[in-house]
Design a binder for these strands. Structure first.
Lengths: 107, 107
DNA sequence: TAATTAACTTACTTTATGTAAGCAAGTATA
DNA sequence: TATACTTGCTTACATAAAGTAAGTTAATTA
């Protein structure tokens, strides 16, 4: 009697629901960033950030670009698929600014 | 050099990002449900469901209603604050149906 | 009377995350 | 030239969160 929920929604949630994922994408919506920039801006540990970026690359949401300068520069940015999450994150932001404030415990 | 991210967004994410929370809310958007209904529809363990429902009550997102019948019936439903998350979840659903399919690794 | 259900809780195991140190390659500083 | 520092990681270990399974209470059905 399991799995009555929409499997695509579940898949979307399984991606977004991993700790830090949404904040990483939110940061990258501002433009491409380097590893240490993401790390310090959202406060995620390097260990987990490294893991998440790999996951997001596999999902086709993030791309890792290596610029062959000296020293080498590595930047992470969103693919189209990644950018297409913007409306969803915008709505969460909207809720953060309005709905979140509500105190009403009325049904 | 931490915390450059919008604190309200972070708060919203800290609620939604906990495992199962979004799926619980998604289920309750369909109407009020009993403990075991939520449990079996999304596949969360009772231990964690119990924990999450308490958290969501504290956040003013969910209400627990006790109907004094025999046997007693307990139902969980969304408050206005909880319902106000619908647009955000709708956008995630939209992404699940369109953006998620994209395979393009183009920037 | 025995078995079953709802709504949990408790004890224990497994998985995820955090912390801190280490590493390679290059840069800047004394 | 030696020392320290930076970036982008990885590794090893500690702690927190989630899963699993059994137990509890009160009432119900077979």
């Amino acid at each position: 009697m399991d799995q009555l929920i929409c499997p695509r929604f579940e898949k979307a949630i399984s991606i977004m629901n991993k700790r830090w994922t949404t904040l990483i994408i939110y940061q990258l919506l501002e433009g491409s960033q380097r590893f240490c920039e993401i790390e310090s801006s959202i406060g995620v540990s390097g260990r987990v950030l490294s893991e998440r970026l790999k996951d997001l690359e596999k999902e086709g949401i993030v791309i890792r670009s290596v610029y062959d300068e000296t020293p080498v520069r590595i930047e992470y940015s969103l693919t189209n698929k990644g950018e297409s999450l913007k409306p969803a994150l915008d709505q969460i932001q909207k809720w953060a600014e309005t709905g979140l404030k509500q105190v009403s415990n009325s049904p």
